[in-house]
Amino acid sequence: MNRLPDLSPEKSPLTLVEVIYSTTIREVMSTDPITVERNTPMSTVQHLMRDHGVSGLPIAEEGRLFGIVSVQDLIEALQQGKLNVPVSTCMTERVVTLEEDMPLSMAISTFSKYRFGRFPVLNAAQRLTGIISVRDINVTLVNRLLQQVSKFESMLDNEVTPGLELNRVFHTRQHDFENGGKASTTIKKHLVDHHVDRSLVKRIAIASYELEMNQVVHSIGGTISYRITPDAVEILVQDRGPGIENVDLALTEGFTTANEWIKSLGFGAGLGLPNAKRVSDEFFIHSEPNVGTTVKVVIHLDKKQKENAT
């Protein structure tokens, strides 16, 4: 049997990692699953499975999950001539469940761990709200990856956008100094080409470059997204870890965790985040150790600017 590939963040393409971590099980599962009650006879289970083409049915009453019955359980009941007994005597009671708010990655690892074909999904109140199968996951993954591919293709087509407005995402990789600065340079060119005031371009370039290089130097990789409107330039940087232990300290000029090699390249002086913050009109940072860091920066394009920009 084909095995699922290793989908750990270190070994997968960033696009896939983003999809499986940002999609919740709620978005993937089939809702309103067909359920049976504890006293439903196995013969009804047989009919339901045949009519609806399902290979497993949760046993639930008013949302409370009591167990799950599979085709395997049905075959055993058939062999023993027990078609009239209530499903509660044939079902598996200790059911492995998933929760709606968990990321899709959790469902994938659960499927790899157990050999079951489906898992009931519960909400925060522990009520049954759906069921998730390998098929649900396949359909979602194919759809999401197709969307991503289309997005990448349109990005390639739209290298030159006619107006000032722009939405673009760049990816960074850990210690990839070769490409470090590429996102910022591209965006700066775009702004200059559209006659944005030089001093504003400078501020945007500083914020963008510092955040970009922070990802290259400190994170295991991530994305930098730009949203340019006639009103403002918004830069959103998100990485996949390792996160910042103490954000206040990281915002202190001169504080650094960079090693000597990084310092020898002219980085890691503890100026990055403070520089980015200083030039920004709005600055937001959130970081969680072992999860990652998100920084959002907004620089307003003032009224005079809007008149100049084309």
Binding site: G180, L265, N275
Partner: peptide
């Protein structure tokens, strides 16, 4: 390089020993 970013203001010429792609960026 962070210092250059923050403080070089309107300088036309950069005097440095850093000679790699990021210096150019």
């Amino acid at each position: 390089l962070s210092d250059v970013m923050a403080n070089a203001h309107d300088a036309d010429l950069l005097i440095t020993i850093q000679a790699h792609n990021n210096t150019v960026a």
